[in-house]
């Protein structure tokens, strides 16, 4: 993405349009709640706006935004007294379960399974599902690429097992 030669607002708009959906998915996968995901996404982009000048001319702005989003999610969980995983899961069923289509039901079920993973696993798997390159995920999460590959392999297995188990019942 060319990020020079644009006004700050135009640049921000471009960055927002290119990244907001993925950042929202990350926040949704992490929290399991639509409203909270929107709040966290908004908070992430507020921080992006406030730090935009520092990041002009950098090659991979998406890595930088993901890093901010991950840290925003981590600090959100620390500030707020979070609901336990079971309640999170119920929340997803409640908010997503009422929706009509099969596709939405499958998505809801997938989010429900993601909610059962550990925090760092949720972060990594949402990036994998959004097809973020492994090198970028390694930079964002601060984990070496070799370890990350092993980790991703395990999370993929865990998520698939959870999903299939869930589908049977």
């Amino acid at each position: 993405m060319k990020i020079t030669g644009l006004s700050k607002e135009a640049l921000f708009k471009e960055i927002f349009q290119a990244n907001s959906k993925k950042i929202y998915h990350l926040c949704y996968g992490y929290t399991g709640d639509d409203d909270t995901a929107n709040d966290l996404m908004q908070e992430t982009f507020m921080k992006v706006w406030q730090n935009l000048d520092k990041f002009r001319n950098q090659a991979l702005i998406s890595t930088w935004i993901y890093r901010i989003a991950v840290n925003t999610c981590l600090s959100y969980l620390r500030v707020e007294k979070r609901q336990p995983k079971d309640e999170l899961t119920d929340n997803i069923i409640e908010t997503k379960g009422e929706e009509i289509s099969d596709k939405n039901e499958q998505v809801a079920s997938l989010y429900k399974c993601i909610a059962q993973l550990e925090e760092n696993e949720r972060i990594i798997i949402t990036m994998v599902l959004d097809e973020v390159p492994y090198t970028e995920i390694a930079t964002i999460s601060g984990i070496s690429e070799g370890n990350l590959r092993v980790k991703i392999h395990r999370i993929k297995q865990k998520l698939t097992e959870l999903y299939n188990k869930n589908e049977r019942f």
Partner: peptide
């Protein structure tokens, strides 16, 4: 998935 962010720039 059709879930989209409700927040604009």
């Amino acid at each position: 998935q059709v879930a989209l962010p409700k927040v604009s720039h």
